[in-house]
Design a protein around this nucleic acid. Structure first.
Lengths: 341, 341
DNA sequence: TCACTAGGTCCTGTCAAAAGG
DNA sequence: CCCTTTTGACAGGACCTAGTG
């Protein structure tokens, strides 16, 4: 009673030709000196449509060993932070892969895998994109399966490519911007986000802050060493006690907390405090007032990651692994200004 | 040179038994009077591990017509809003399905499908969960494929189940809460979100606001009819001109905008203005001050949706479609208080 | 009854080969 | 023997029915 879906044989029978002919017509295979009469071609196509024929991709994948399926790993933790950069990246990844010749199905794996277990889908995939990180076991599995992979905003070993934002350059831009505006008391507020533990961005942004200030003979503002727990307490210490006139903060969520805290302490932004954060265009666009931010280039990251992956899928032998750094850009808007003191 | 993955035959050869034996051992099939010696069983399992054998699911799916794969559709638009309820729902969906006997792979389809095209993955799936909405063509495809489906926060026709929050009840709770606190001038601020066009929540929340106020002989505050474009202008009209002492707003993003606007207009929350929004626990938890909100129960929605889907997958004949309404709950925190005038 | 296996089945893609002119 | 059009047989990997010693 279950609806039986039409298969190649059904179409062949209905069209009065062999299965091979149907297969070749529908797949447009013109290689081995193959040709069909216009007559047969049209009949086959028409009947396939009538019967709503869709090839059974399990059988297809069984023979040609390709599934045209690309998996995005690490979705569960990467998407847990509100509106973070990975959403934008995923959008551009799907754009590229959807529109690639032949097309790929992009699926995001959302399972929260217990540590030590395998993150790969049970399906054979043609390629993988990893958001920030995955377990070393997963990397092993991917390598063993032979599928190429690209890591976005995280490290890859020699067998895989990576695309990351240049956090060092971005932090330099932020410091330069504030100094050009006339600030000399510049604070750094780190992120309290749990799932970021150990991510290079934490270290890179912080260390560059310290290095840049030291290089210019400026004093760092205490509290930069570790994540703040209360934005109000942080501002009391950094702005009121230590007289910072500007804060560079890890991300848009911490920026939001700092803005709220500044309001409640009666500190005007940007008149009394300049604020700058790392995030992407989308996150910044939904905040008001317009945040001055270091654009991580998430759209570009997704684009490049997808293109590199595509190259490796199409050309497994030839394409080689690369580690690309995306330049971060300063977007000057309403939360930074000359200091008033 | 390409690493060839071990298959059933390889394991069988290495263990010195037949493929059937390996298959049955690994699948624990004890039905048809099948049995194995402890000896063979252990040897097979050990060798399978050594060779890192993983069944080729294409071949498996070919025979038993099940893929143990569940697809979440509508991810692209559902996840575009920062930190919205679907992320939480997806998390509980994956929890349930991962831990189901046998386990399911949950993948979220992220492609932004051109209107009129098919949203289904090319793969046969065992079931689908739809976030808010999908094209009617997709529904047709799912039905034709015979896979069961459940819609979260959206309408389903007779062949599918649905789980939605009770927006009418939730709005009643919000109005009641404000009235109990002593408010009589209650405003409603709708959402400017594009991808929500036509969603029942827009109508339900708005209409219930009007109905509840009318029923109590209270005047509605102008501006409720359509989404605001500028939160500052909205508050000027609703709070300053029309002297509203409280605002019910569509979601956490509009709440955020209103909080920012209130700050910049010098309106203290909750002393001069009470604010209440519809969202889930997670969104509310990252905002400060603690937002009073109507909890949409996204975790529960995901849970129930996954369980209903599971039931239909395991019991295609017996399980019947249901439309479940989740009760919304008021969470009283720091943005609502007695009016001061 | 126990312990195990051969071989057919699912459906598509491919290749060598054959039919028709 | 040519070319064009079409085909049958088989591979691919796991599962299951029927069957063996």
């Amino acid at each position: 009673m279950a609806k039986s879906v039409a298969n190649l044989g059904d179409v062949a029978a209905a069209a009065g030709v062999s299965k091979s002919t149907v297969s070749r017509v529908l797949n447009n295979k013109l290689n081995n000196g193959f040709s069909v009469s216009v007559d047969v071609r049209q009949r086959v196509i028409k009947i396939a449509e009538q019967l709503r024929y869709r090839p059974n991709l399990m059988a297809r994948g069984l023979t040609n060993q390709r599934t045209r399926m690309v998996s995005v790993l690490g979705g569960a933790h990467a998407l847990s932070d509100m509106g973070n950069i990975y959403q934008t990246a995923i959008n551009s990844i799907t754009n590229v892969l959807d529109n690639a010749p032949g097309g790929f199905d992009v699926t995001v794996d959302m399972s929260q895998h217990a540590p030590g277990t395998n993150e790969l889908p049970a399906w054979k995939i043609d390629g993988a994109i990893i958001l920030a990180k995955c377990t070393s076991q997963t990397i092993e599995e991917i390598k063993h399966s032979g599928a190429p992979y690209v890591v976005i905003n995280g490290p890859a070993d020699s067998s895989g490519s990576s695309v990351s934002p240049d956090d060092i350059g971005g932090t330099e831009l932020a410091v330069q911007h504030l100094i050009q505006l006339g600030h000399t008391r510049i604070a750094y507020a780190s992120a309290p986000l749990r799932h970021l533990a150990g991510h290079s961005s934490l270290r890179d942004r912080h260390d560059t802050y310290v290095k840049e200030l030291n290089a210019r003979g400026l004093e760092t503002i205490k509290g930069h060493e570790e994540p703040f727990t209360s934005a109000v307490d942080y501002l009391k210490s950094a702005v009121i006690t230590q007289r910072a006139t500007s804060v560079i903060t890890y991300g848009h969520m911490s920026a939001l907390n700092i803005m709220q805290a500044a309001h409640s302490l009666g500190i005007a932004i940007p008149r009394e405090l300049s604020l700058i954060a790392f995030c992407d265009e989308y996150a910044a666009s939904v905040m008001s007032p317009g945040l001055t931010f270091i654009d991580l280039g998430s759209r570009e990251m997704g684009l490049i990651a997808a293109e590199m992956l595509l190259e490796k899928i199409e050309n497994p032998e030839q394409a080689q692994s690369r580690n690309v750094k995306i330049q971060e850009k300063l977007v000057f808007r309403d939360t930074t200004a000359r200091p008033c003191r």
